[in-house]
Design a protein around this nucleic acid. Structure first.
Lengths: 128, 128
DNA sequence: TTGCTTCTACGACGTTTGTCGTATATATTT
DNA sequence: AAATATATACGACAAACGTCGTAGAAGCAA
């Protein structure tokens, strides 16, 4: 049984992003969505999904002859894995540096900033 | 002139991390440092550095017959590039989601949290 | 000077990644 | 029914990645 914790490749990550956002969907849908950004053949997407299925990254059910794919591992688990890697390699493990960088270069809504402040407050209370 | 904005590979990122942290250093040093984490041959590291030099990712000077390598592109530029990619692909472009995640799963010092709060305050004042 | 260590250079090679083409089965349309 | 469209399966392949081995120059040690 292959239940390793594989890191998705670039192309796989693009596909996962679609599955996460849209929920279970067909190869056709994924491919159309991909083609909104970059040109890629149908069979390419198909094969990609098949390989991801072999790896256990996605599951699938059949609707007639059409396969419907779903992301197997949760989004957050993958998020954490990729983020941890980036944090270590590029930010020397400093979470605050990373936060400063992303907050500084991407606009967040007042509501989002409020949420973050809430979290910080909780963190500060948690270990005085 | 090759001045593209290349994304470093995994192995390259490991090397860059060392160059960023340590500043200019020899192949030997980089290799030793790498071997503290994973086993890798000297010539492998050498070749890696040579390729990175061809790509323009690192520069080098000579100290006798030894080459001293330095990271060419700033750490922050590379940070932003990798972070942007991750933000888009894994977090659907939501900076706050990313921040919440990293802040929630990695301990930050009170001083760091204070810094972040400062930044948020500035952001809130900047666009009322 | 002869040998041992330490460089750089470079070619080779197994894998992984990403991309398709082709074959074939099953629907759909005319 | 015949033609067209759409699915999956699968093999092939070029390019990128990561890893070494070997060669040869340069410095150090016996």
């Amino acid at each position: 049984m292959a239940e390793e914790k594989l890191k998705p490749t670039e192309a796989e990550l693009d596909i996962l992003a679609i599955l996460w956002e849209q929920g279970p969907c067909s190869v056709r849908y994924v491919n159309d969505k991909l083609n909104m950004t970059r040109r890629v053949g149908y069979t390419t997407t198909l094969k990609q999904l098949q390989i991801m299925h072999e790896k256990g990254m996605v599951s699938r059910t059949s609707d007639g002859r059409t396969h419907i794919y779903s992301a197997e591992r949760g989004r957050e688990e993958t998020q954490r894995q990729l983020l941890d890697r980036l944090l270590d390699a590029a930010f020397g493990g400093s979470a605050s540096k990373l936060v400063m960088q992303v907050l500084g270069s991407h606009r967040s809504s007042p509501g989002e900033l409020e949420e973050i402040k809430e979290l910080i407050k909780k963190l500060e209370e948690g270990k005085p």
